[in-house]
Computed example of a mutant assay.
Amino acid sequence: MSQKRLKDIHLRDPFILADDDSKKYYLYGSIGQNVWEGKAIGFDVYISEDLETWEGPLPAFRPSPEFWADRHFWAPEVYCLNSRYYMFASFKADHAGRATGVLVSDHPAGPFKPYVRALTPENWECLDGTLYIEDEKPWMVFCREWVEVKDGEMYAVRLLPDLSGPAGEPVLLFKASESKWAEGVGEGNENYVTDGPFLHVLKNGDLAMLWSTIGKSGYTMGLARSASGSVEGPWVQDQDPLFSENGGHGMLFTTFEGDLMLTIHQPNQHPNERPVIFKAFEKDQNLRIYMQGKEEKTC
């Protein structure tokens, strides 16, 4: 098995699971080589003990010929619940709406097998579902794509306890244009992108959501906060983005030493996108990151 540094790993939408059982880190993402075109390979995983040297890629998921989707396998996120590992990911096929479904495995490296075809509404164009547990009840936050609704939307849907399906109707949380750091794209600048939600409770109890869009300098990631402390909101956007220089689709994880870390992909242009890891911390009720050894809130 080969060893790689992050700069040698071509992944978008990185997600890192710090697995308590193995005391290893597992890196997943959208495989960069065929993220846009061609038949999807599946999902790979890289494994590390120090976040610097990674072994892989290992095949975490390879679809069977009967699998319903054949392209745009995007943004896998893996969670350990009741000693099983659940992968939330986006899938697409002709004549079917893009959907977030669930795969399952007994090991963080897989092999993952299909569990739920779709947790998102039939015929909607959706992506980037992320799991959040509130009061012991599972929710999924996901994006409804701008390609369908123009002003990209963020939704939450409560799930059944075993994650086998939705337990209610999706709740609209906000639209991309509500953020001051979102820029319109396309003809007439009327399209606004929603990408990559990830929920995190700050030390002061605020429920915050990382999410990404297109800003003045390219791909941009910022924070929204729930005024009620609940996933149903209402959600208020921070005035300034957290990361504004052509990188995003971020998530937070805690190292085995207790350090809070942020991973994103940067830059956003194909085929140069790579996973990047920053040390994160909270200051003045804000999430901040270290850039090149310096404390930064935005960059």
Rank of each mutant, 00 (worst) to 15 (best):
P57R: 13
N82V: 01
H95K: 15
G97L: 08
N82R: 13
M1D: 04
V149W: 02
L223T: 11
F67T: 11
G101F: 12
V193I: 15
S179W: 08
L17N: 07
G101T: 12
H265Y: 12
Y132S: 01
K203D: 12
P271I: 11
T255E: 04
S105K: 09
G293E: 09
R12V: 06
K92Y: 11
P14C: 06
D238P: 03
K23E: 13
T130V: 14
W36L: 14
F112W: 10
K137A: 09
R274S: 01
G229E: 06
Y26C: 00
L260F: 01
R274H: 02
Q285S: 15
P65H: 08
G258I: 05
S30R: 03
S90K: 09
T263E: 02
G186Y: 14
P166A: 15
F281P: 05
L172V: 10
E134N: 01
K92T: 15
L199D: 04
L172D: 06
L207V: 06
E282S: 08
Y192D: 07
Q237L: 13
R144T: 12
D128K: 06
E296L: 06
G293M: 05
L207I: 08
L51N: 05
Q33M: 13
K216T: 14
F198A: 13
P63Y: 05
S212A: 12
P63N: 03
S212F: 03
G38W: 09
Q269V: 15
G186C: 11
D240V: 13
N189M: 09
C126M: 05
Y219Q: 08
K175Q: 14
C126T: 15
L51K: 06
L223R: 01
D44L: 09
D259V: 04
M291A: 10
L27W: 00
S48W: 00
H107A: 10
I133C: 00
K294C: 10
Y115F: 14
A182P: 03
G38V: 13
D206A: 09
C126K: 02
A75T: 11
Y46C: 00
L103P: 02
P138I: 07
G56L: 00
S48A: 03
D259P: 01
S244V: 05
Y219I: 03
M154Q: 10
G215R: 05
R71H: 08
R158Y: 00
V185E: 07
T213Q: 04
P138S: 04
V45Y: 00
E232D: 03
D20V: 14
M261H: 01
Y155L: 07
H200P: 02
I31P: 02
K175A: 01
A176P: 03
R12N: 10
R12E: 09
E190S: 13
M209Q: 04
G56H: 00
T213M: 01
V236G: 01
S2K: 14
K150M: 12
L119E: 12
F174S: 11
Q292C: 10
C126Y: 06
I9L: 03
